[in-house]
Nucleic acid binder design. Structure first.
Length: 633
DNA sequence: AACGTCACCAACCGCACAAGT
DNA sequence: TACTTGTGCGGTTGGTGACGT
């Protein structure tokens, strides 16, 4: 009895049933491979995996995952289209690029990313793979959303329910919008945040296709950016708009439960903004008509400063530094460079003017006392450490004493007795939102160009074409005998393709293996195809090139072909020829990376090599021949 | 070239809440 | 009523690429 050794990073299958199913999927793929849409058959095979007993499911999923990855590497187009169709995800196909986890995803590799034991199985953590996405999508299609904890039980996904829900909600569910926020969306987010505070989920409800996570990330980034730039978080018109709405609702006796909740929330968090804030704001409204002489940033800052910062007397701290890098702001904010980046001339007078009077941009004059603590207590009673401080311009270079939490305020503080100020409230002035300039610009041009790597040129088309050529030509006889138009992968994956494949692997830059965990699997799988009594290894196609190149290239091409490497005869020979062996090992290292290479060396160093890889002795040797699979399509 | 910083993104974690038992 | 379970939400962390020094 020969002892079979399962490579460390191979399929690790032990079930002939699983092998059959995956092999079936493989065949379906090539058989149908005349257009990308047919690739869904591979997906169907995947789905069929979900119907097998749970004992086999993992192996199957893993195997199909490897198949996906093989072709994902061979042709990135294939992946983009197929997975888009399969899972309706947009994150991986919108720009035609694959995320890294898709390129070198570890597949379903239990424990590879850590994880926890739940119910005797290891729950995977970390980035989701496309295969996992496919499983989850299929599960939701069948069972609908909800009951996320059952996903792991019923689908074979080694993910906790929370993780599944999150993945679905943020990436997989239909009608998700991905990509940069539009100006309108940004504007809406700002407005919503002004009203709601950090209620991301509620904000997301107002932004179809956007997730709370996206909005949250956007906002957090925005906070950092603007604080570093010393800019207010809310543009003045938003402040005023919220204020207006607030007052309207107050006047009409409306009571927005949501906002009241937020109000309560703020109060329970000591985020109280005294009424005077809005009194001041109202006061400013009356004078906003004077604003055009000033940059928007000034007005914006003033208003938001007035909303809660005790630093309004020193508007921009002298130590305010120019942001190290304002990728977007600097380019889009060029109109304000004079006031913001270059020392804020408008406010320099606040810092330098020794006169005891501050001329407000609103046209109001306030007596100024150098010691505001005496005669001018912090305006509006802003509480140190409260979000009120952070609402406005707090220079990053001037830390706020006390605990500072980036909990941002809602501007929905409606209890203000505005009438006490005796200032009428004109409609909010039409101010160009500073944010409209500061925030992300509309993408220039098409912005997200497809990732046009040299490999992204329809290689699969070529591959498929070749498959047809080969299947209609030399394989005709075998097809007849098989009563099926089976095209064997090692037939169609010609040297040029795989050479490109190799280049692609390098390009992907996986330091371990160009296919990640898949490399060995490809290796094994293709070997199985070769050794599985289906087709004999064929001479490697050689490209006619100048002599010098030709030799090198042919050598390279030879070993670019996993099937060539794994041809049973070839392996026997290679083990007998040191030179060839050396070339081979080098090639393996080049092709599959060090990790697999070490595995290979280990195997090669043992006498079991031929046992493992030898003809008819692999772990797949119990796999029936293709023509014996009656259920083949 | 190496390193640091930043922006962006995805995912995890802990908590709170609601529904069911 | 107390407990469990499922779910949602917000905060936080970690990875990665771009860019600057």
């Amino acid at each position: 009895m020969k002892k079979s050794r399962i490579p460390k990073r191979g399929f690790g299958w032990r079930s002939s049933g699983a092998q059959i199913l995956v092999f079936k999927a493989w065949i379906i793929f090539f058989k149908q491979g005349s257009s990308f849409s047919k690739l869904n058959h591979l997906h169907q095979a995947w789905i069929s995996c979900l119907r097998v007993p749970s004992k086999l499911r993992f192996s199957l999923c893993k195997g199909i995952t490897h198949l996906f990855e093989v072709f994902r590497v061979i042709n990135r187009n294939w992946c983009g289209i197929t997975f888009k169709e399969m899972s309706h995800t947009t994150n991986e196909s919108e720009d035609g690029m694959l995320s890294k986890d898709q390129i070198d995803s570890p597949s379903i590799d239990e424990g590879s990313c850590g994880g926890s034991f739940v119910g005797g199985s290891v729950l995977k953590k970390g980035p989701w793979t496309s295969a996992e996405d496919a499983i989850l999508v299929e599960y939701v299609k069948k069972h609908g959303e909800g009951n996320w904890n059952a996903v792991q039980k019923h689908s074979g996904l080694f993910r906790c329910g929370k993780s599944c829900r999150l993945r679905w909600a943020n990436h997989l569910r239909p009608n998700l919008r991905k990509g940069t926020f539009t100006v309108d969306e940004e504007r809406l987010i700002i407005e919503l945040h002004a009203k709601m505070g950090n209620k991301w989920a509620r904000m997301a409800a107002h932004l179809p296709g956007r997730t709370d996570n996206e909005i949250k990330n956007y906002w957090n980034t925005r906070i950092k950016r603007r604080q570093r730039a010393g800019l207010p978080l809310y543009p003045p018109d938003v402040c005023l708009q919220v204020l207006n709405e607030n007052q309207q609702s107050q006047n009409s006796g409306e009571f927005n439960s949501g906002d009241s909740r937020h109000h309560d929330f703020l109060h329970t968090n000591n985020y109280e903004i005294p009424d005077v804030i809005f009194n001041n704001l109202k006061a400013s409204q009356g004078a906003l008509s004077f604003a055009p002489a000033l940059p928007d940033i000034s007005l914006s800052s003033m208003i938001t400063q007035g909303l809660g910062s005790a630093q309004m007397y020193s508007f921009m701290p002298p130590t305010m530094h120019r942001p190290k890098r304002l990728r977007e702001s600097e380019t889009l904010f060029s109109g304000f460079n004079g006031s913001v980046s270059n020392g804020l001339p408008v406010f320099d007078q606040f810092q330098n003017d020794t006169c005891e009077k501050i001329v407000w941009p609103f046209g109001l004059s306030f007596p100024y006392d150098p010691d505001p603590n005496i005669r001018n207590p912090p305006p509006f009673g802003a509480i140190l450490g409260s979000h009120a401080f952070l609402n406005g311009n707090i220079s990053a270079s001037k830390p706020i004493p006390g605990a500072v939490k980036l909990e941002l305020p809602s501007l929905q503080y409606s209890e203000t007795d505005l009438g006490s100020w005796g200032i009428s409230s004109p409609p909010p002035p039409s101010l160009e939102s500073v944010d409209a300039f500061i925030q992300s610009p509309p993408p220039a041009g098409s912005m997200q160009s497809d990732c046009l790597s040299p490999e992204n040129n329809g290689l699969l088309e070529t591959l498929i074409h070749e498959s047809h050529t080969l299947s209609s030509g030399k394989n005709n006889s075998s097809e007849k005998s098989l009563n099926s138009s089976i095209v064997i992968p090692c037939d169609i994956v010609d040297s040029s393709t795989l050479n490109l494949c190799g280049r692609g692997w390098k390009e992907y830059g996986d330091p371990i293996s160009p296919l990640g965990c898949s490399a060995a699997s490809v290796f094994i799988f293709l070997y199985v195809i070769s050794a599985g009594c289906i087709v004999k290894p064929e001479p490697v196609h050689q490209v006619s090139t100048p002599d010098g190149e030709e030799k090198e290239k042919s050598t390279r091409l030879d070993f670019s072909r996993p099937d060539a490497l794994l041809g049973s005869d070839w392996f026997e020979q290679s083990t007998q020829c040191d030179k060839d062996h050396s070339v081979m090992t080098d090639s393996i290292e080049t092709l599959f990376g060090e990790d697999f290479y070490s595995d290979y060396k280990h195997m090669a160093g043992t006498s079991t090599l031929s046992q493992v890889w030898g003809n008819g002795s692999c772990v797949w040797n119990n796999m029936p021949a293709v023509y014996q699979m009656s259920e083949l399509p």
